[in-house]
Design a protein around this nucleic acid. Sequence first.
DNA 1: CGTAATATTTAAGTAAGTTATATATTACAA
DNA 2: TTGTAATATATAACTTACTTAAATATTACG
Lengths: 114, 114
Amino acid sequence: MISPDLIKGSLKTIVLRLLKENGRMYGYEITRKVEELTAGRIKLTYGALYPVLHKLENEGVLVTEAENFNNRIRIYYSLTPKGNSVVAEKVNEMKEFIDSLQSIVNLQPGLNNG
Amino acid sequence: MISPDLIKGSLKTIVLRLLKENGRMYGYEITRKVEELTAGRIKLTYGALYPVLHKLENEGVLVTEAENFNNRIRIYYSLTPKGNSVVAEKVNEMKEFIDSLQSIVNLQPGLNNG
DNA sequence: CGTAATATTTAAGTAAGTTATATATTACAA
DNA sequence: TTGTAATATATAACTTACTTAAATATTACG
């Protein structure tokens, strides 16, 4: 398991990227998908996820459709046009972040420095 | 520039990884090196860096040697044996983190899902 | 009949950062 | 010589993105 402190800050981008991928998803589904894609290494907490979804909706980044499945409410989220451009920005930033971390982590003694 | 929220949480690992690489470094040097390695995309703030260095010292992860250069104090930090094992753990975790982020960011529509 | 899984909500608390300020020397330009 | 930028460290006050915890409700399984 990856420590929450490390993941902190990436939540929004992760959620938005998955929504871009899947068109629409509900909260619980997002947590499942993240666990699946990361081999259980990233687990989103509901206390973090749902407030973020609500916030993104209030900002006009996401829209919701409530549906009923087996007497359980599912609230599907999908990107607005504004949301689409936000994802693009966020994903670019995350790619730069990954590149940056890699250039630090992958340092090799005696090869890159002097 | 990568947003502070994204970097937050990685600071400790970045610092430790650089110290492992360079043997010993002083605070200001660490900020320069991170900017250099990340093409200016990650800028550490002193308000974050120095408290972290002090904390790691108190935990027995780092030791210090104060030196004088041009009438300016330089406090060099280097890893203790304990520090070496901490770096190893932290770097492993970060590699898993990077892998996880990549498996989300690099999703391709219609290829991995169904 | 109890537990696990599914599904969402939200209040209270934590802590890792940011922001701002202080201090002091060297170097360079106008 | 006066001011600004770079070098070098320290720390108090504040923010906020989370974690933790508790609540609610249905389905599924042993």
